[in-house]
């Protein structure tokens, strides 16, 4: 099947495909980070995670509109404001949800799945009511459009690079938060031994609440980044949840490195397979491989040893 390509063209295609895989990787990491934090901390899978992302995306959409109408001079920088807002909005909603719902279901993780699924349905319908069923897109500022040509045949889109840089930034931010701050120390203490953490004076309820909020906030940032590479509709969140869940589960519950490694594996295998097969078969095979590996190694790639 490769006869019609020359060697140089093949390398270029491979490179471009690899780059597309990297963008997918960044998006997956952004989406999975928030979920991984929550799952690692509380053992709760937030089925409404996709909807939190979409909330971030809609926040970005609104911000871009406001900037376009009232502050056209500052339009180039709206994206940073939008991301901060997306984080705040999702954080606030996340804290609210934890306070109103999750904390009562703490000992029943399976029920949390259902309750958060209910939440996701409600959010979806709210988006549909408020923003309409049609997908919306944002106007990108000028500097984010176009692409950067590395050679004559290789071009990389600038928004893709931006998403990658953003992911790097957020991931290191989460790393510092979890492993270099007092709050992170508390979180890890609660993960390792909840009653003992409580006994030494850590307010575990508060730690849970803010962990959930921050996880949702990161989902908001992910959604915000998302608007740069695709349009947003009320049900867009659903398209990605399975991938995101698998990334988290595949990576191992309490491991940040695991999440990143599994996102990398999944995205690269998917984009490489996409070149050989149809898109849907690539996805099927990727997911099957992940499920297969999970059956052999249920604890995920990197499992943190904790006392059960």
């Amino acid at each position: 099947m490769f006869e019609e390509y020359s060697m140089a063209e093949l390398t270029d295609i491979l490179f471009m495909q690899g780059f597309a895989g990297l963008i997918l990787f960044s998006v997956l990491v952004l989406m999975a980070l928030g979920l991984a934090i929550i799952f690692g901390q509380m053992g709760v899978i937030n089925m409404a995670h996709g909807e939190f992302m979409i909330l971030g995306a809609y926040t970005t959409y609104l911000t871009s509109h406001i900037f376009e109408t009232y502050l056209p001079a500052l339009f180039d920088g709206y994206f940073f404001v939008a991301m901060a807002l997306a984080f705040l909005v999702c954080f606030a909603l996340g804290v609210l949800v934890e306070w109103g719902m999750i904390r009562f279901l703490f000992k029943r993780p399976l029920d949390t799945l259902l309750a958060t699924w209910g939440l996701s349905l409600i959010l979806q319908q709210s988006y549909r009511t408020v923003f309409g069923a049609r997908e919306v897109g944002v106007t990108l500022p000028e500097w984010m459009m176009g692409s950067y040509s590395m050679t004559e045949t290789i071009e990389v889109p600038i928004n893709g690079i931006f998403v990658m840089v953003l992911t790097l930034f957020i991931a290191s931010g989460v790393y510092f938060l979890m492993f270099r701050s007092l709050w992170g120390k508390q979180v890890r203490a609660v993960v390792q031994n909840r009653p003992m953490a409580g006994a030494v004076g850590i307010d575990t309820g508060k730690v849970d609440r803010y962990t959930f909020g921050i996880g949702c906030g990161i989902a908001g940032i992910a959604g915000s980044a998302f608007t740069m590479i695709g349009s947003t509709g009320p049900t867009s969140g659903q398209l990605y949840i399975v991938d995101t869940f698998l990334v988290v589960v595949f990576g191992g519950a309490q491991s940040l490195i695991g999440t990143i490694a599994s996102a990398f594996t999944i995205s690269q295998s998917q984009s490489t397979l996409e070149f050989f097969l149809s898109g849907s078969m690539a996805k099927v095979i990727t997911l099957l491989i992940v499920v297969g590996i999970l059956m052999l190694r249920p604890q995920g790639l990197f499992a943190l040893k904790i006392r059960q």
């Binding site: 799952f39 053992g43 899978i45 993780p109 399976l110 799945l113 399975v242 869940f245 698998l246 589960v249 149809s278 849907s280 078969m281 996805k283 099927v284 997911l287 099957l288 992940v290 499920v291 999970l294 059956m295 052999l296 249920p298």
Partner: peptide
């Protein structure tokens, strides 16, 4: 799954993934 003691949330997520795979496969 069960012989390897996978259960709870993991099992739920994996069965969900299987449902997704199945749909993609049928449509594809």
């Amino acid at each position: 799954m069960f012989k390897r003691r996978v259960g709870g949330v993991y099992f739920a997520i994996i069965t969900q993934a299987i449902a997704a795979i199945m749909t993609i496969l049928i449509i594809g």
